[in-house]
Structures are given as structure tokens and as C-alpha cells.
């Protein structure tokens, strides 16, 4: 099912998302058809734009992404306990509200103040990631060497999984992070050995290929080469077609070749 939001008067081009399909699969308790559970069908890059709102706040974007993450991996969020499913529905309710649709669910009753309680750890992790990214602007990253940033970043991912990646995703996709730091983060996202976050990491790396910063696109390509997952091939092919810098295009082609020969 395709969901079509008609923009307010004065804005252009209707926005079409495959939300229905993803939502349906999520509610059935399955992942997407590729079996990877990844979120490439959700064009988050289009969240800003013709929706009657000029831009979304970070908090709203966080909720939106969380909602979809929840569909794909609700059972992984043990720290959220029983409220994770509720948060998914709350997120969807808000998203559909922004789009001018009404979303209903009757799966669970909302416990009082559950959201307020469970937002707290996310805020802490968000602060930790934001501070880490800010401090790293003064670091010099050396090829093949660990840095304070990489050690802390990997540690946060291993401790907090998708929640930590989501906070990094917000900084990277909004292009608020320093390009060198974002690039380094993407490179390490490809190296982390953490199977529970594989689908989110590959999604973020593919999104990194669309960044306006060449450094970030380069970091995303490197992250994908570390990850070595052929699932990224279509995104890489598109990135190569779009790429205007010949040197970077060649680097991405090299990664593509590697993935095409991956087991």
C-alpha cells in the first residue's frame, strides 16, 4: 500500500511513501521482504519538506525513526520493557498526524507516564553521543589507529545498540555533525561487531552516501566496505551514478566491486 500525503496549498509535489507496506509487515511481526529488516524504503531525507511544516524538530525526527525501528525490532528493546510497542504506536500516531491522517491502534493500554519514564535513558544517551561528537571535532583521526572517539563510540553502541546509533543518525543525517567526525563514525559503524544493530547500521551507512559532504560519503563507502554486505549494492550503484567527484566515484566503485564478490 502506498500512502500519499497531499501537501498544503502553496507547497509542491505530493509525497509518496511506502509506509503502509512497512507498517503492515511490522504489525504482522515480520521484517521486510529482503529479510534484512532494513529501512531503506523509508525516505527520511524527505521528512523535511512539503508536509505543511518547514522542518521537523530533532525530537520529532527521533520519534519518527524510533517508531519504525520499533516495528523492525521491538523485541530487542528489553530496556524499554512493555512500553516499546506503545511508543511505536505513539510515534506512528504523531507521524500520521503530521501527514494529515488518523492512526488508530488498540493493542495495548498506555500505562500512566510510561513515556516520560522511558525517555530519560534516551536523553542521557543522546547527550553522551552529542558530547562525544562535539569533543571529537578537536581530535585528529589517524588511519588504522583507535581514537578516544572511536573507543567511546563503539562502547556506546555495544552498550545501548540501536538507541546509540539513532542518536548518531540524528546528528549525521541532519548534517549537524562535523563532516570529519561523521565520516569517522560511519567508518566505525561498519567495523563494529554487533549483529543486533546490523540492519540499522547498514541503513545509516546507505543514508550517509547521500550526504552533501564528500568526506561523509567517503566514510559511508568505507563503512560499507568494512560491513561487506551485498545488500548495499543498489545504494552504492545509485551513489556512483550521482557522484560528481571522479576520485570519490572511483573509491565507491572499488567498494562496489568488493561487495559484488562478497560471499
Amino acid at each position: 500500500m502506498t500512502l500519499e500525503a497531499i501537501p498544503d496549498s502553496g507547497t509542491e509535489s505530493p509525497l509518496r511513501w511506502d509506509l503502509g507496506e512497512v507498517a503492515h509487515q511490522g504489525m504482522e511481526g515480520t521484517t521486510d521482504s529482503s529479510g534484512t529488516g532494513e529501512l531503506s524504503k523509508i525516505p527520511l531525507g524527505q521528512v523535511r519538506g512539503p508536509l505543511g511544516k518547514s522542518s521537523w524538530t530533532e525530537g520529532e525526527l527521533r520519534e519518527l525513526v524510533f517508531a519504525f525501528l520499533g516495528f523492525m525490532s521491538a523485541n530487542n528493546w528489553s530496556w524499554l520493557g512493555n512500553s516499546s510497542e506503545i511508543m511505536v504506536h505513539e510515534g506512528l500516531e504523531r507521524l500520521f498526524g503530521y501527514l494529515g491522517f488518523h492512526y488508530e491502534h488498540d493493542l495495548l493500554e498506555r500505562p500512566t507516564s510510561s513515556t516520560a519514564i522511558n525517555l530519560e535513558p534516551r536523553r542521557d544517551i543522546g547527550r553522551a553521543i552529542a558530547n562525544l561528537f562535539t569533543a571529537a571535532r578537536n581530535e585528529i583521526f589517524e588511519e588504522g589507529m583507535e581514537s578516544h572517539f572511536s573507543k567511546e563510540f563503539v562502547s556506546l553502541i555495544k552498550r545501548h545498540g540501536e538507541v546509540a546509533i539513532l542518536e548518531a543518525a540524528i546528528l549525521i543525517t541532519s548534517e549537524k555533525a562535523d563532516p570529519d567526525v561523521a565520516s569517522e563514525a560511519l567508518k566505525w559503524l561498519g567495523q563494529v561487531k554487533h549483529s543486533g544493530t546490523h540492519s540499522f547500521r547498514i541503513w545509516l551507512l546507505k543514508r550517509g552516501l547521500t550526504s552533501s559532504s564528500p568526506q561523509v560519503r567517503d566514510g559511508a563507502g568505507l563503512g560499507l566496505s568494512f560491513l561487506n554486505d551485498p545488500d548495499a549494492i543498489p545504494a552504492l550503484q545509485q551513489a556512483i551514478e550521482r557522484e560528481q567527484i571522479p576520485e570519490l566515484r572511483r573509491d565507491l566503485e572499488q567498494v562496489l566491486q568488493q561487495l559484488q564478490h562478497a560471499p
Binding site: 583521526f141 589517524e142 588511519e143 564528500p214 568526506q215 567517503d218 567527484i245 571522479p246 576520485e247 570519490l248 573509491d251
Partner: peptide, 9 residues
């Protein structure tokens, strides 16, 4: 350290 400093095109 990083070839993307050397993009000359």
C-alpha cells in the same frame, strides 16, 4: 592519512 584531502578534480 586520508586521500579525500587530495581531490583535485
Amino acid at each position: 592519512n586520508n586521500k579525500n584531502r587530495w581531490y583535485r578534480s
